[in-house]
């Protein structure tokens, strides 16, 4: 682990420990629990999008599979929560393999559309109430609480610690992954598939692995969701959520796991904080974010904006000292343009 990431992790942990002191109110903690759940999904998505250069528009489907899988197994078949989570996870990964294996060999658009279609199918099936399992549009409740090491997660504070501990564990693993041989291979796929193949990288294999990991993380988040809310219905898992998740990753910068978390928390907190505004303007907001960031800040809002500001400052100081002509030659080139 690089020093930068290690410091980042420590700062994040300290931050997470301090927050409940200032925002102990269950409502605020609840917002942070949601941020944590979405962060889990978005970290996986960031790995797949930013490091692999692929796009999945079906994460809401995997999230739904986790939620429904855990919900149905515990509430209807009397499973214990953890085995239920495991079963849902395995089922989700198998389905992801079914979708990913053929389409990941194809070019970018096909996978996007296949995952999009997959997400909608999951939604349609959940809505159609097959065998009376999903409860149709009105969903079903009676999902038991989750307990960890005998400790029941029965209040917001415990959920907060639990979800963010999970986020940290995954973040730690993923940071290891991206800074390794495998991570380099993934990034080389983003950098140029042909060259990656010629360098001996089994592109299809790595894409599939990253896709499965992102599906698995969404499934875990879905299982947590089911136990956290205690109730599952199809509505939250619609197409818009899949796109919203992509937006969260994009706002933080697709090529950066830290950015994914920051973007997720930012958007979740904003959405909650300005609920009435977002009820009316969420579509426009997401749309604008996607277009503007893709056009102007390919590295995400944080890094991209920081670089733009730095460039502006440098240009301003350059103008002030006019005696050094041409001192600033800033490359604002899009790093993706070459791919």
């Amino acid at each position: 682990m690089s020093k930068k990431n290690l410091i980042g992790l420590i700062v994040l942990i300290a931050f997470l420990l301090v927050i409940p002191r200032f925002f102990g109110n269950p409502y605020y903690l609840g917002v942070l629990v949601w941020s944590g759940l979405y962060s889990l999904i978005c970290m996986g998505l960031s790995l797949f999008m930013g490091y692999c250069g692929q796009i999945s528009l079906g994460q809401a489907g995997f999230y739904a599979l986790g939620a429904y899988g855990s919900g149905i197994l515990t509430a209807r078949f009397g499973f214990e929560p953890w085995p239920a989570l495991a079963v849902a996870l395995v089922a989700c990964v198998i389905l992801a393999l079914g979708v990913g294996l053929p389409t990941l060999r194809l070019k970018g658009h096909y996978l996007a559309m296949a995952t999009l279609g997959f997400g909608v199918i999951i939604y349609v099936v959940a809505d159609a109430d097959p065998f009376g399992l999903t409860g149709g549009p009105s969903g079903f409740s009676g999902i038991p609480k989750l307990s960890v090491f005998g400790l029941a997660l029965n209040d917001e504070l415990r959920w907060y610690y639990f979800v963010w501990a999970t986020v940290l564990i995954f973040l730690f693993f993923l940071l290891n992954l991206v800074n390794s041989r495998v991570g380099r291979a993934l990034r080389s796929i983003h950098g140029g598939e042909t060259a990656a193949k010629a360098m001996g990288v089994n592109v299809a294999k790595y894409k599939t692995q990253a896709f499965l990991l992102s599906a698995a993380m969404a499934s875990v988040a879905g299982s947590f969701y089911a136990h956290y809310v205690g109730f599952v219905n199809p509505e939250p898992f619609n197409l818009e959520l899949s796109i919203h998740l992509v937006t969260m990753v994009v706002i933080g910068g697709v090529t950066n796991l830290w950015g994914a978390i920051a973007g997720t928390v930012l958007l979740t907190v904003l959405t909650e904080g300005f609920r009435t505004f977002f009820k009316e303007y969420r579509l426009l907001f997401d749309g604008l974010i996607l277009v503007v960031i893709m056009l102007l800040f390919a590295e995400g809002l944080f890094l991209g904006a920081a670089k733009k500001v730095a460039a502006l400052v440098a240009r301003a100081s350059c103008l002030r000292s006019r005696r050094r002509p041409g001192a600033s030659t800033h490359s604002t080139g899009n790093p993706e343009a070459a791919s």
Binding site: S188, G192, T255, A338
Partner: peptide, 8 residues
């Protein structure tokens, strides 16, 4: 046509 990984 030079295919270095531009992101690295």
């Amino acid at each position: 046509n030079l295919q270095l990984f531009a992101n690295m």
